[in-house]
């Protein structure tokens, strides 16, 4: 679905630039499909690492030294948070996906499934068998299935599948649509489950994050604020001392 392709040619001048921007914005927002904990983590990081230091430096009336310390504290804390939450989300999501695709998260006799692979395989099978009826559908669905394998099911791809099914001459249109709907629902259920479990894990690991921050933060701040003091002093030695040490067996 490409919204900004509509009547694009008729737009000229200043007002047309605004209209084009509106179509482009609508197109971008319509494509937004997966908003979850990943978005929250990214926004939190940007805010803490960039906006808070900028706000402190511009608006705070504290002495410069104190202001700089507060401003620096936030990007360091943001980096800690990112290093903790991003792996939890990625590794946790992978672990849950593997369990779900083995059927370990489904309850016997329940329709509420998280097994995305099962519904994906069913849908792909149905598409392949329906493609035998219609040459045109065969080539379009082949391309779409390739995209599905590479990128997974997104809103755009789902719309394209529905369009391809609707415009075909196959006899199993309704069955295919139902199969796609089931696959999409399972895909979304799994996504939201991954998000909620990773949120619970992030909350449970907050005490460790706080401890790590308390331990490492003063050390990092010390390194940033006083880099010279932390460097090891260079060894200075006179020629006389060097000769004396060499006679004793060398400088250790």
């Amino acid at each position: 679905m490409k919204i900004n392709s509509l009547e694009k040619a008729n737009f000229k001048g200043y007002s047309s630039a605004i209209k084009r921007a509106q179509y482009a914005a609508a197109d971008k927002f319509a494509k937004i499909d997966k908003i979850g904990e990943g978005t929250n983590i990214a926004l939190d990081f940007i805010g803490k690492a960039v906006l808070v230091p900028a706000t402190i430096m511009v608006a705070s009336k504290e002495p410069k030294e104190k202001k700089e310390y507060s401003a620096l504290k936030n990007p360091v804390a943001a980096a800690f948070q990112l290093m903790m939450e991003a792996p939890i989300l990625m590794l946790g999501s992978n672990f849950i996906e593997k369990l779900a695709n083995k059927g370990k998260l489904d309850k016997e006799g329940s329709n509420f499934s998280y097994n995305e692979k099962l519904y994906k395989d069913k849908f792909v099978e149905s598409v392949k068998s329906a493609a035998k009826e219609d040459k045109n559908f065969e080539s379009i669905s082949g391309e779409l299935l390739e995209k599905l394998d590479k990128k997974g099911l997104g809103r755009n791809l789902k719309e394209n599948f529905y369009d391809a099914i609707e415009n075909s001459t196959i006899s199993t249109k309704e069955t295919l649509k139902k199969s796609l709907k089931e696959f999409d629902s399972t895909h979304k259920r799994l996504y939201h489950l991954q998000n909620r479990v990773c949120f619970v894990a992030a909350i449970a690991l907050t005490p460790i994050l706080c401890k790590a921050e308390d331990y490492f933060f003063p050390k990092i701040m010390n390194l940033i604020k006083h880099p010279q003091e932390n460097k090891k002093p260079k060894m200075r030695i006179s020629l006389y001392h060097f000769k004396a040490q060499s006679a004793k067996g060398g400088i250790k």
């Binding site: 679905m1 919204i3 914005a25 609508a26 197109d27 971008k28 927002f29 319509a30 494509k31 937004i32 908003i35 978005t39 929250n40 926004l43 939190d44 940007i46 805010g47 803490k48 906006l51 808070v52 706000t55 809103r155």
Partner: peptide, 23 residues
């Protein structure tokens, strides 16, 4: 409707977690 749903989610999260919380 789709563009509005996407904008609703993004504007709320950006407004609350970035602008309100961080500024």
């Amino acid at each position: 409707k789709q563009a509005s749903a996407g904008f609703g989610a993004v504007s709320t999260l950006v407004g609350a977690t970035v602008l309100a919380k961080r500024i």
